[in-house]
Computed example of a mutant assay.
Amino acid sequence: MKEYHILIACGSGIATSTVIANRVKNLCEDNGFKVKVQQVKIVEVEKMASEFDLIVASTRVPETVTTPSVFAINYLTGIKPEAVDEQILKVLRDLGE
């Protein structure tokens, strides 16, 4: 089984990314995906993106990054977090094809 590497990013790389990382890890494992997550500051994303399959961030990812990304502010606001769940699962399914 392929292990997907997911980069979780927020402003500081600590607080909100921990909330997002836990949700993403549980979501993926509950849906049969083996994942490894790493938390970083958003300013680190550009230099690290190519090493990851997916970026999930609480802020906008730089436009120069070509790795698939999902904007996950809904996890923090609580407004339709399942929409973000579906986006993440779709990316992983598409990568597996």
Rank of each mutant, 00 (worst) to 15 (best):
32 G>Q: 06
72 A>D: 05
10 C>S: 10
64 T>A: 15
73 I>W: 09
69 S>E: 07
46 E>D: 10
42 I>V: 15
40 V>D: 01
19 V>L: 15
36 K>F: 12
55 I>R: 01
50 S>I: 08
72 A>L: 07
44 E>A: 10
13 G>M: 11
77 T>P: 02
72 A>T: 05
94 D>Q: 14
73 I>Q: 10
92 L>Y: 05
17 S>V: 00
77 T>V: 01
81 P>V: 02
95 L>T: 12
17 S>D: 04
41 K>C: 06
59 T>N: 07
35 V>L: 13
86 E>R: 13
89 L>H: 01
23 R>E: 11
39 Q>I: 07
14 I>L: 15
9 A>H: 03
24 V>L: 06
39 Q>G: 06
64 T>K: 14
69 S>G: 09
73 I>T: 13
31 N>K: 14
54 L>V: 00
39 Q>N: 15
66 T>Q: 09
38 Q>E: 15
30 D>C: 09
90 K>P: 04
75 Y>D: 04
44 E>Y: 10
74 N>Y: 04
26 N>W: 12
94 D>R: 11
34 K>D: 11
45 V>D: 08
28 C>I: 06
9 A>F: 00
72 A>Y: 03
8 I>F: 06
7 L>G: 01
84 V>C: 08
54 L>E: 02
45 V>K: 03
13 G>Q: 07
44 E>D: 13
78 G>D: 10
86 E>V: 08
75 Y>T: 07
18 T>A: 15
57 A>K: 03
79 I>S: 08
35 V>H: 05
24 V>Y: 03
34 K>Q: 13
90 K>T: 12
63 E>G: 05
32 G>I: 09
44 E>H: 14
59 T>F: 02
1 M>Q: 13
65 V>S: 02
17 S>K: 07
89 L>P: 07
33 F>M: 06
37 V>L: 08
90 K>N: 11
67 T>S: 11
59 T>W: 01
56 V>I: 11
64 T>D: 00
45 V>Q: 03
34 K>H: 09
22 N>F: 07
93 R>A: 14
44 E>W: 02
7 L>S: 00
84 V>I: 14
36 K>L: 10
64 T>R: 11
89 L>R: 01
54 L>R: 03
75 Y>P: 05
20 I>G: 01
82 E>F: 04
68 P>R: 13
66 T>E: 12
83 A>C: 07
8 I>P: 01
87 Q>W: 04
56 V>K: 00
47 K>H: 10
39 Q>Y: 08
67 T>D: 09
51 E>H: 14
67 T>Q: 06
81 P>W: 05
11 G>D: 10
